[in-house]
Design a protein around this nucleic acid. Structure first.
Lengths: 147, 147
DNA sequence: CTCAATTAAATCGTGTACGATTTAATTGTA
DNA sequence: TACAATTAAATCGTACACGATTTAATTGAG
């Protein structure tokens, strides 16, 4: 990109590059996760819960930056499929805590293994991976000022 | 990230960083575009058509990596709102070409201006912007091998 | 103690997004 | 020229994603 005149071409839009890459990750991960019967967003929920089991819907929403309009029906599907269980907090009946079911704990290794294998197959250098991660976090910080 | 042992934490997932950043862009752009009565994906369609007017649904889908299941209803909404017009190709009645309506041409400057202003307000360095764009394209190439 | 403000989920309506199927037009080959 | 294969859109069913509203439980000021 040589000047701001090129700003409006699709090819030079950072937002579009992110949009496209996100689609690619979604498709790649969906393929791998399909045999397990989970979707890519559901896998992100599992990742969050594997790290900290028993989070409330609100905490999960803060972690994944998702609202209840997305999470409530998604958790219901994961509940139906035996991945998680809902439990009302005893001290505050408004809160609903989400706990992993045995299935989610048992499948953890198998799932992370196929995901890791798939990512490794893409031959992404560790340095490249980390650099991108750092830059994305820097970008996230800057974008958040506009919200 | 020090080793592959950290691979499964949400914080170190490149896919999640991309997922989050995409959400941020979506929200930021949606706020700005809302007064014009278009959504962020619809803005991407306009960007593509401003570059090359009269593309078929298939071409638009290839450009934006979207299928007809997404595009057909979206174009219908944009048609209803007066942004585009559909026209069957004379030489091949299967093809449907999408043309910008006057509204889309008239609003082009106003829309790109507010978007540019919003992005500039985030204080993203040009070098940072270009580096990220390059790295994302490199990543896209590697991810595409897995699809 | 009480009742208005706050908080946590659930619900609702709209708009993507995708895989699979269907419909209709065109093409290639016998 | 037939007519089966191919191609382009549309359609369908499921699953996010979000803003706005609603419901129910808790908190807090008077």
């Amino acid at each position: 990109m040589s000047s701001l005149l090129d700003f409006l071409t699709l090819e030079n839009q950072l937002c579009f590059a992110i949009y496209e890459t996100n689609s690619q990750f979604t498709k790649l991960y969906s393929n791998v996760l399909h045999p397990f019967g989970i979707t890519y967003p559901q896998y992100l929920v599992l990742l969050a819960l594997w790290e900290r089991n028993g989070m409330t819907v609100k905490e999960l929403g803060e972690r994944l930056k998702l609202g209840t309009g997305t999470l409530t029906p998604m958790i219901k599907r994961m509940e139906t499929n035996g991945w998680v269980r809902k439990e009302r907090a005893a001290n505050d009946e408004r809160k609903v805590c989400i706990f992993l079911e045995a299935k989610a704990l048992d499948e953890k290794h198998a799932i992370t293994e196929v995901i890791a294998k798939e990512v490794l197959a893409c031959n992404i250098e560790l340095a490249e991976y980390e650099a991108l991660l750092q830059q994305l976090k820097a970008l996230q910080g800057k974008l958040s000022t506009g919200l």
